[in-house]
Simulated scan of single mutants.
Amino acid sequence: MEQKKKVVYVVGAGLSAGLNFPTIRNLLPRLWGRLENVGIDTEIANVIRFHHPNFNANICDTYPTIEQLLSEMKVNAELFQSTRPATGNFSSEQLDDCRGNLLQEMAIWFHDLKKTALKSKPAWLHDLVNAIKEEEATIISFNWDLILDQLLFGAALDKGSYGLDRRKKGPHLIKPHGSLNWYRSSAASPIKNDKKFSLGGTGEAEVFGFRPLRGVRSKKGRRYMPLIVPPVYTKQFDEPLFQKLWQETVRQLSIATEVRFLGFSLAEADFHARFVLRCGFYNQEHGALKKDGQRETATGRAKVIVVDLSCETLKRIESTVGWGCEFYRMNIADWIQENGIKTHDAER
C-alpha cells in the first residue's frame, strides 16, 4: 500500500524576514527607535554597555544580537548575588524590569508588523498558505508572530489549530517557542470567555489563546506579557504546554514523508531544536517510541528540502537529518514562484 503523503514545514526567521520582520542580527538596531520613543533606551543601553563597553546606539556594528543580549542579562541575573557584596547602582529587580520591558516592546512591535504584512500580503505567501491548507500539512514554526495563525485559521483558531487536539484534521501550526497570542491565566483572566480559549492546564497554570488575535496592549491601557520563550542560548521549557508541543513536534516529524525547511537556519547554539529535530529523523529510520518501550514501524527516510541563502544552513541541517537534502539557494518567495509548491488555486 502506498504511504499517504505527510508534509511538514519547518519555518524560522527567514520566513518572517520576507515580510519585513527583523532577523536576530538586525533586531536591536531596528527596535532602538521604539525604545527611545517609550523612554527605556537609556537603561537598556547601560546594560548593553556593561557587557559591551564600545556600544554606540548610532553604530550598527556595535550592537549585540538580541539572543546575545538576553543571554547576557540572564547570566547577570543568575550570578547577581554571587558576584558582589552589595547591590551597587543597579539592582536585580531593575535588571528584571529592563528585560521585561525589552521583551514587551518587542511583542508590541511584532503586532504592528503583523498588521502591515497582512495589508500587503505578497503572492508567494498566498500560494504558501493555499498549499499548506490543501496538503493538510503541519507547520513547525519557531517564530512568535501571528501571520500564519491569521491566514490559516482566522476566526476558527482553537487549540486544535496548534496541534493540541489530535482529533482535529490539519493543517496544524506547532509553535515550540510560544506565540504572541498565548497568555497565562493571570493575564487572561480579565478577557471575556468568548474572546479566549484554553490551550491546556488548570488553575493558575492554565494557558489561553486569544481569539480574535489581539495586541499586547488593550484599549484601556492594560499590558499583557505573552507566553514566549526568549531567544537565549540556554532556553527553558518548564511549562507543561511546551512539553506537549515538543512531543507533538517529534511525533509529526517521525511520520513525515516530506520535510521542507523554509528560512530556518538551525543556529549552532540552538541545541533544543537540533535535539528535537534529530529525534524525529531518527524515528523515521527506527520507528517512534511507544509507551511500552517498543517502537512503531519505521516510516522510512523523508524527502528533505532546504530553502535558504546560506550553504552553511544546508550543512547544519544535513548533519542533523542524517542524509542528503535537496537544496535551493534562494529566498522563499523565489522558490515558491519558480521551483516550489503548486496549488489548485494557482493552476486556475
Rank of each mutant, 00 (worst) to 15 (best):
R49S: 10
K119V: 01
H172M: 13
F210N: 13
I317T: 11
K114F: 03
A131G: 04
R211T: 14
N283M: 12
G287C: 03
L180Q: 09
W323P: 02
E36P: 09
Q252L: 05
S189C: 04
L19Q: 06
T202F: 13
R251Q: 12
D149C: 15
K291T: 13
V321Y: 13
V47Q: 03
L164Q: 02
C60R: 15
L146R: 09
P22K: 03
R217S: 15
N26D: 15
A346P: 02
G100S: 15
Q247T: 08
I59A: 10
F80S: 00
P22M: 02
A13S: 12
R301E: 07
P226G: 02
P29L: 12
E338W: 05
T299M: 00
V8Y: 02
D345F: 12
D41K: 05
P230E: 02
F55V: 06
E296C: 08
S254K: 15
G178E: 09
K4R: 14
N193L: 05
R25C: 11
L113F: 04
E36T: 13
K219H: 13
P231R: 05
R274L: 14
N56K: 15
Q252I: 01
E134T: 01
L79H: 08
Q284E: 08
V259K: 01
R251T: 14
N339A: 10
K235P: 04
V259I: 02
E2R: 11
R223G: 00
L103E: 08
N283T: 06
L19S: 05
F210I: 15
K290Y: 08
Y9F: 15
H344G: 08
M330F: 08
G340L: 01
L152W: 12
V232A: 12
L19V: 11
E204S: 15
L28E: 13
L15A: 03
E2V: 14
P240K: 06
D61H: 15
K168Q: 14
R214H: 15
L157K: 05
K133T: 06
C279G: 05
A107H: 04
H272Q: 12
C311I: 09
Q243E: 05
L164W: 07
V11M: 13
P190D: 07
E239R: 00
E338F: 06
G88E: 07
I132C: 00
V229S: 00
S91H: 01
W246A: 02
L113P: 08
P53G: 03
R99Y: 10
F110K: 01
L173Y: 12
K119P: 00
V306Q: 06
P176E: 09
Y9T: 05
I336P: 05
Q252F: 10
V47E: 07
L266S: 14
E312V: 12
P212R: 03
E204V: 13
L199M: 06
E338H: 10
A188L: 07
E72W: 04
L70G: 08
S92W: 02
L213R: 11
P231F: 01
V207P: 11
E78H: 04
I341D: 07
K121R: 02
T313G: 03
T313D: 03
W32P: 07
V229N: 00
N331Q: 01
D238R: 09
W32A: 11
L227Q: 04
A346V: 03
T320W: 13
G178R: 09
K219A: 14
C311N: 15
Y9M: 07
L102E: 09
T297I: 00
H126P: 00
S218K: 14
Q252V: 12
F261C: 07
